[in-house]
Design a protein around this nucleic acid. Structure first.
Length: 662
DNA sequence: TTGATGGACTCAGAAAGGTGCAG
DNA sequence: TCTGCACCTTTCTGAGTCCATCA
């Protein structure tokens, strides 16, 4: 009954057939359908409905690849086109020249992150602008002029009234409680019931502002863009060891209402405005210390080169630290990323021994050892997260492997013709539901039965285990090994295996990319990376289908015309007629190509409906696998990595040859 | 030695912003 | 050529993991 993570993720398949119709019944598609079904059945509440977000999909690729877009500008001369091309190449070369090739340099001694760090400090959001006189808040039908602090918080709520959040009781109660703290005594005495509050005019004003921003003229938008760019230029970069590095989040989070995911007990609480007096600055001793905003001072200025953050503050809702850190394309982040994949690659060399060990531990006389073995089996086979303990009542009720409770699994001696099936149903990170039915070995099954004996629904499944002891055990098996590494390892190895199985050199670029996306999708399914289906999904699929239908009609017509042209040219030596035949042939060919691309696009989009590819691409897949694949398959790298990803993975792009193996 | 705590970092999906294409 | 819209990219910030420190 053993199924490898790879097979688990993709279904036990061979190669994918090539045609659209046949794809619909491919194992991967079936798996996706099962996932969709699982999701529909579960009535999963994804915390909000996303507007129109699609992951990097083939559609973009196809558009780019098509590349024959008709220019709307005046036709450029050959010289102009050549000059533009040369400029682009030069710019690229220049960029490449300026890139800090940190991966070719010696690493610092342990713990030291930098020798020199200078920056301008964080950027603070603008202060509150009071409401205009004609925009009023009403309580119990009567206008009430609120004090500025109360008015600001009222506006936070008003901006969200058409969001699902404001219908939730917990959100409303938390908001009202915190709002009342901002009110004056008189306001508190008057405003006793949130249901009697009318935020209508405030909300309308907000909508109007959003609309106005949308409707700005080209020139006005440009002015705004330039102003924003100025802020980025000033605050968005730092100097780290003589190199200019982009900062990831240089803006202090503006005040607002806390938007916890799922049933977060603190949702709706007021996230207070951060002042310079709350902020700790970190920079090097000899550097120019950033100036706090006029009339303010920093909480502290420290010079700690063992950490990577530039500024930090404590947030009031959960009491956690927030940091200003570097962008993903920086040396500090890149080095760590590289290291992460190297540790995962190292696991490859000892994973067989570790698997043998936990199989053996399933028979241990020690209950703790057996629990650890089962947990490890789940982490390895299903890519579950470690599952740290959480403070009850402080966050939403989510779990990972070690924190699973009896209520989260159901054991089936037989299910759908399979023996020893474990049915998982729990909320994981970000309140994303994990639902899966997995056949396991008899020994694992027997152990689970034992762990559940004499326990209540709410009891811990692994009562003799926590993430600390699990990770301590793992690090004794391999230095640097933790539960998380299994996720990275299994994700990357799955991608590599899938690419090997699905790849076909004879395919065209669009088909190769579909294979890549499918391999990526297998990983996303394994890691349970979900997204809310785009609101416009059904409509856009219908639009695409209409286009496909119309293209099919065109193709039929083109074929008929070709047949006719051939008939007319038959036996004739008239050159004109032969030219017509050639033209018609090309038209048919063009139609066929376009139709194929659209069908590929439709398949890809359908399969991606509820799956987020970007998370695994960004965080779990060793980029060297993708770079090597592109080289081997002769697919341009920019078809799978956009500019941001190419920057983030510059180290991998530079060092990877076609023969790289994870 | 163990467990609690909190600091520092990675990972996560939603939402805002930008862009290019079709009509 | 213009405009609206769908799609892709970037930003935002919440939610995890893991480790050092301390009692």
């Amino acid at each position: 009954n053993e199924v490898s993570p790879t097979k688990q993720a993709r279904g036990d398949s061979g190669k994918e057939p090539k045609l659209h119709r046949r794809w619909a019944s491919s194992p991967l598609t079936r798996q996706n359908k099962q996932l969709n079904f699982r999701l529909q059945q579960s009535q999963i509440t994804l915390f909000t409905k996303c507007a129109a977000m699609t992951p990097f999909s083939l559609s973009k690729v196809i558009k780019e690849e098509g590349g024959h877009s008709v220019s709307t500008k005046k036709k450029k001369t050959k010289e102009e086109i050549e000059a533009a091309r040369a400029l682009k190449v030069k710019k690229k070369e220049e960029e490449e020249k300026q890139r800090w090739r940190w991966w070719e340099e010696e690493k610092y001694e342990d713990g030291v992150k930098w020798k020199f760090l200078e920056h301008k400090g964080p950027y603070f959001p603008p202060g509150y602008q009071p409401l205009p006189d004609d925009v009023k808040f009403y309580y119990n039908g009567k206008p009430v002029k609120l004090s500025l602090p109360a008015e600001e918080v009222a506006l936070f709520f008003a901006q969200m009234v058409d969001h699902e959040y404001t219908t939730k009781e917990v959100f409303r109660n938390n908001f009202f409680k915190d709002w009342r703290k901002e009110m004056t005594l008189e306001e508190r005495q008057l405003i006793m019931d949130l249901n009697k509050c009318d935020f209508g005019e405030l909300h309308a004003m907000h909508i109007k502002k959003v609309e106005a921003r949308k409707n700005l003229s080209k020139e006005e938008k440009l002015v705004n863009k330039e102003a924003n760019q100025k802020i980025v230029d000033e605050y968005g970069y730092c100097v780290l060891d003589h190199h200019r590095e982009r900062i990831g989040n240089f803006k202090i989070e503006p005040p607002g209402l806390f938007r916890g995911r799922g049933d977060h007990p603190k949702q709706g609480m007021l996230k207070k405005r951060i002042q310079p007096e709350d902020v700790i600055i970190n920079c090097s001793k000899g550097s120019r210390i950033p100036e706090p905003p006029a009339g303010h001072r920093w909480k502290e200025v420290r010079h700690d080169s063992t950490v990577t953050w530039l500024a930090s503050w404590t947030e009031n809702v959960q009491g956690s630290c927030k940091y200003v850190m570097l962008n993903a394309n920086s040396k500090l982040k890149g080095e760590k990323d590289w290291e992460k994949y190297e540790v995962a690659r190292k696991l490859k060399t000892c994973v067989d021994a570790i698997r043998a060990q936990y199989q053996e531990d399933l028979k241990s006389k020690q209950m703790g050892t057996r629990q650890r073995a089962v947990a490890l089996y789940f982490i390895d086979k299903l890519a579950l997260r470690a599952g740290n303990e959480k403070e009850e009542g402080e966050t939403a009720d989510t779990v990972g492997c070690c924190s699973l409770r009896v209520e989260h699994i159901t054991l089936h001696d037989t299910l759908d013709g399979q023996k020893c099936v474990v049915e998982f149903d729990f909320l994981g990170k970000d309140c994303i539901r994990y639902y899966n039915k997995v056949p396991v070995t008899k020994r694992v099954f027997k152990n689970l039965k034992l762990f559940m004996e004499n326990k209540q629904e709410g009891d811990d499944l692994f009562d003799r285990l926590n993430t600390q002891t699990l990770n301590k055990h793992l690090s004794s098996l391999m230095p640097g090994l933790t539960a998380k590494v299994f996720r990275t390892y299994n994700a990357s190895i799955t991608l590599q295996q899938q690419l090997k199985e699905l790849g076909n050199m004879k395919e065209n670029v669009a088909e190769k990319l579909l294979s890549y996306n499918r391999a990526n999708r297998a990983v996303a399914i394994l890691c349970n990376h979900q997204r809310a289906p785009p609101k416009t999904f059904e409509q856009s699929m219908a639009n695409l289908q209409a286009k496909i239908d119309s293209r099919k009609e065109q193709l039929d017509l083109a074929k008929k015309e070709l047949k006719q042209a051939k008939k007319e040219a038959k036996g004739s030596s008239d050159n004109k007629l032969l030219i017509v035949v050639e033209k018609k042939k090309k038209a048919v060919q063009r139609c066929e190509e376009q139709l194929l691309k659209m069908e590929v696009q439709a398949t890809d989009r359908e399969e991606n409906k509820q799956i987020a590819l970007s998370t695994s691409k960004l965080n779990y897949l060793d980029p060297r696998i993708s770079v090597a694949w592109c080289k081997n398959m002769e697919v341009p790298l920019d078809k799978i990595y956009n500019k941001t990803l190419r920057d983030k993975f510059a180290w991998a792009i530079d060092m990877t040859e076609h023969d790289f193996v994870f």
